[in-house]
């Protein structure tokens, strides 16, 4: 069951992003997992508590793996509480990523809601590492409040590197001078050629449905709109049956799924 065995990784850095979210930088103790591509996930193990699927949010210097975790349950609370020096387990990387290599030469429209920015961070980092391979990079970010915004310093840095970043919040706070409202309201600000663009979307399901629909209406071909979907996962390798979404096993056929495939499935309640 080598595939079910966590590989020990040490926390080398812990950055608090928001009140309930931290980014952990992990390095292998001895053996390492294969290098994840943007959009893939690992199963992160907190000693004795359990395991959850978490998208990879960046790498940096190999073999470092960075993962952003929001504390919503027992395992994610334990992971968020892990301090530098502590050991966690990783399995993976699993699943189908964004397919960034397939869209070389295209403009990139990235739309993130909440923690959904985490798997798109790895796209931005990868694209900025070799910007000539892509056209314009547009990043649309939605957060509940300004305090819930992930990676604010990095957003500034990416802006300086030429990424067109637009941020909106559901509820403003004192001092907020940016947009307020749904992320779809930002799409009109996108300065990219829809026909020559690929769009990657990650966030709550309702946000992904509305955003993907709006992007397609703007002219992005449905097969080049890709969504990162979420379901319960127990194994990551296609045996446990938990991550089914209709015909898909999301750990195997996803988590990134083309909109044309995902749209009819997301339209069915409780599928």
């Amino acid at each position: 069951m080598a595939r079910m065995r966590p590989v020990p990784y040490r926390v080398v850095e812990r950055r608090r992003e928001t009140r309930d979210t931290v980014t952990l930088a992990l390095e292998p103790v001895a053996a390492r997992i294969a290098e994840p591509s943007p959009g893939q996930f690992t199963m992160m193990y907190a000693w004795g508590v359990g395991e959850v699927p978490v998208s990879v949010s960046g790498g940096g210097a190999k073999p470092r793996v960075e993962q952003t975790v929001r504390a919503v349950g027992a395992v994610t609370r334990a992971l968020c509480g892990a301090r530098p020096g502590e050991m966690l387990g990783l399995r993976g990387p699993f699943g189908v990523g964004w397919g960034l290599d397939e869209v070389q030469g295209f403009d990139l429209i990235l739309a993130a809601g909440g923690i959904g920015l985490a798997p798109l961070r790895s796209v931005v980092l990868r694209a900025l590492a070799d910007p000539r391979r892509y056209g314009r990079i547009v990043l649309l970010v939605g957060a509940r409040t300004p305090a819930d915004l992930l990676y604010p310093d990095e957003l500034e840095r990416w802006r300086r590197c030429g990424v067109h970043v637009e941020v909106t919040v559901d509820r403003a706070a004192a001092g907020w001078t940016g947009h307020v409202g749904l992320i779809t309201s930002l799409i009109d600000l996108v300065d990219a050629d829809p026909a020559r663009a690929a769009a990657f979307v990650c966030g709550p399901e309702i946000m992904m449905r509305l955003t993907a629909r709006a992007l397609v209406e703007r002219g992005v071909p449905p097969h080049r709109v890709r969504l990162s979907l979420e379901r319960n996962m127990r194994c990551g390798v296609g045996w446990c049956g938990h991550c089914q979404l209709g015909p898909l096993l999301l750990c195997r056929d996803g988590p990134v799924v083309p909109y044309e495939r995902a749209e009819p499935l997301m339209a069915v309640k409780e599928l």
Partner: peptide, 21 residues
Amino acid sequence: CFCTTVEDTTDLTGEHAERWQ
């Protein structure tokens, strides 16, 4: 029907952990 879940446990000392399918 093949579906499984996993159960992670430790002993009382917290020094020993197991995963069961």
